[in-house]
């Protein structure tokens, strides 16, 4: 069973965990650096990015999270999580994890009164996905290794690389688990490529 962490400092943690379980994965809540061990992938949920960043710094999570990204394991950020992943945040001097080659803009659809839901066409997902946008960011520009998966009103709202998946909206607020399943499919399959752990074989 795939073990997928959900950064559990604040925000829509329960919803992501439930969605993972509904897709047959094991959800692991991540509050401390040691919780990152033995995970196959990690989700950074929606919430308040400034709050999460403060708690990330306070509890020494920034380097372990960046190391997790360096290990090549898939990471998925929704809304605030997307902001945490981005290499650059428009109007701010510093990024958070700064690992996904995109520039994001915070609150770019406006305040809560401009929050909305809308059906989205998403590449790789067959029928429209009912997406919930809450004080949402958007992706201003994406680097060469990034594939745009969805746009809304001319703004990029979902994109991926081979390792990272990010979206402006909150798939965790709906009962539609297709995006979680899509993310799980980014985890390399355990069959076929895995080698026995015993060092005996390496000497053969």
């Amino acid at each position: 069973m795939k073990r997928v962490g959900v950064l559990a400092l604040q925000g829509a943690v329960r919803e992501h965990a439930q969605s993972l379980e509904a897709c047959g994965a094991k959800a692991v809540l991540v509050k401390w650096p040691s919780d990152l061990e033995d995970l196959d992938a990690l989700i950074l949920p929606g919430g308040e990015s400034t709050t999460m960043r403060r708690l990330i710094d306070r509890y020494g999570l920034i380097d372990p999270l960046r190391k997790f990204a360096e290990s090549g394991k898939p990471m998925f950020g929704t809304c605030a999580g997307l902001i945490l992943l981005a290499k650059e945040i428009a109007g701010y001097p510093e990024a958070h994890l700064g690992v996904m080659d995109i520039i994001v803009e915070r609150n770019s659809f406006g305040r809560q009164a401009e929050s909305f839901e809308a059906p989205l066409s998403i590449k790789g997902i067959e029928t429209p996905f009912e997406a919930v946008f809450i004080r949402a960011p958007h992706i201003v520009s994406a680097g060469p290794g990034i594939e745009v998966l969805s746009e809304h009103g001319g703004k990029i709202v979902m994109a991926r690389s081979s390792q990272f998946l990010g979206c402006s909206f909150h798939p965790e607020l709906t009962d539609d688990h297709r995006i979680t399943a899509y993310f799980l499919s980014m985890i390399p399959s355990e069959t076929g490529i895995s080698l026995p752990k015993s060092s005996v074989y390496s000497k053969v």
Binding site: G11, G47, Q112, A113, F116, I134, R135
Partner: peptide, 21 residues
């Protein structure tokens, strides 16, 4: 079509505050 002020959007905003002060 974008829908504003739906229950999901209004309640969802509070979901994002969970675990917070």
């Amino acid at each position: 079509m974008s829908k504003y002020g739906t229950d999901r959007v209004k309640r969802g905003m509070a979901e994002m505050q969970k675990g917070g002060v």
